[in-house]
Design a protein around this nucleic acid. Structure first.
Length: 300
DNA sequence: GACCAGGATTGCT
DNA sequence: AGCAATCATGGT
């Protein structure tokens, strides 16, 4: 039992090596985030539940390892299933069911991970539990700087998402599947990105692609399923394998951010080669997802 | 005003 | 299999 249902609030118990503050700091990295808000160390966001209702929740910390979720929207879900669904979402969002001790142990003597893991101790692989949101965010972020990616996401969400009590729900794939390329190109994304987004939305909307299907196969198979989709290359596939599907060995080795983080850690003038990265990554076997996440973190 | 950005596809050897 | 051109816009 890792959470308690007190009806008006949910109390969620974090595992060892968890820091709510570190995760909040990570979530605060962009001032242009549109999917949630953070005020006074509390997180606010809207969620769409499986029974087609929506809730607005507030997540705070009683202490750094006990989270409290309050239901702020007019309709506190009377159904126990809805509250359990929210508890699952929060646990998944902050990856609260992973034991990080083995990762911290291998990081102790790792030239690249030692510093980030001590500096950000308790940081989790903060996820994107919704598959379409994860894929869309990956596609939106391809080849452009992060601040522009946030701008595009905001336009995308505010154009095609749904607003609940002042907070945005991510656009539903059914909605995006019905758009034409020009609708998205108008937001100043490339026509190819527009095609990719619509294509992925159609696959999810018609049931060909789902989180369940990706989770019932092994890592390599899931990777192939993703890369076979037009617009999803190795980088986006591993990004989603890591941040949505929770595979521990996802490794977007071509990522510019990862390269820059290693460059910064080593004091290089130039970005490391792929061979150099693979050399360092030998020590990360089975924990590439967390290694990448912690290295990304030092850039913000 | 270059140069690069949390890449992927297409077309060519 | 490997490489170059292309996409298109905004940040720095």
């Amino acid at each position: 039992m890792h959470w308690e249902d007190h009806h008006e609030i949910l109390r969620i118990f974090a595992p060892q090596a968890f820091s709510f503050k570190e995760n909040i700091d990570y979530l605060s990295r962009s001032t242009d985030e549109c999917m949630f808000a953070i005020k006074d160390e509390k997180i606010y966001r809207a969620l769409a539940l499986e029974n087609n209702t929506t809730v607005l929740i507030e997540i705070s910390a009683e202490n750094d390892r006990i989270l409290e979720v309050r239901f702020l929207s007019g309709t506190t879900p009377e159904n126990k299933a809805g509250r359990a669904e929210v508890a699952r979402y929060v646990r998944e969002w902050f990856d609260m069911d992973t034991d990080l001790e083995p990762f911290y142990q291998l990081a102790e003597n790792d030239p690249l991970l030692h510093e980030p893991t001590s500096k950000f101790y308790g940081l989790r692989n903060v996820g994107l539990p919704d598959l379409f949101e994860a894929l869309a965010w990956g596609i939106l972020g391809q080849q452009i700087n992060l601040s522009f990616a946030y701008t595009l996401k905001r336009r995308f969400v505010e154009s095609f998402g749904e607003k609940v009590e002042g907070y945005w729900l991510f656009p539903r794939p059914e909605r995006i599947a019905s758009l034409n390329v020009q609708d998205l190109a108008d937001l100043k994304m490339t026509r190819k990105k527009s095609e990719y987004l619509i294509g992925v939305a159609q696959l999810i909307a018609n049931g060909e692609l789902s989180k369940e299907k990706l989770l019932e196969v092994d890592f390599k198979t899931a990777e192939k399923m993703l890369v076979n989709i037009r617009g999803i290359g190795p980088w986006t596939a591993h990004y989603v394998l890591a941040r949505c599907l929770g595979f521990p060995s996802a490794f977007p080795i071509d990522d510019v951010g990862l390269q820059n983080a290693i460059k910064l850690m080593l004091g290089y003038e130039q970005k490391p080669t792929k061979e150099e990265i693979l050399h360092y990554a030998k020590n990360w076997s089975g924990w590439e997802t967390y290694a990448t996440f912690y290295l990304w973190r030092i850039l913000y």
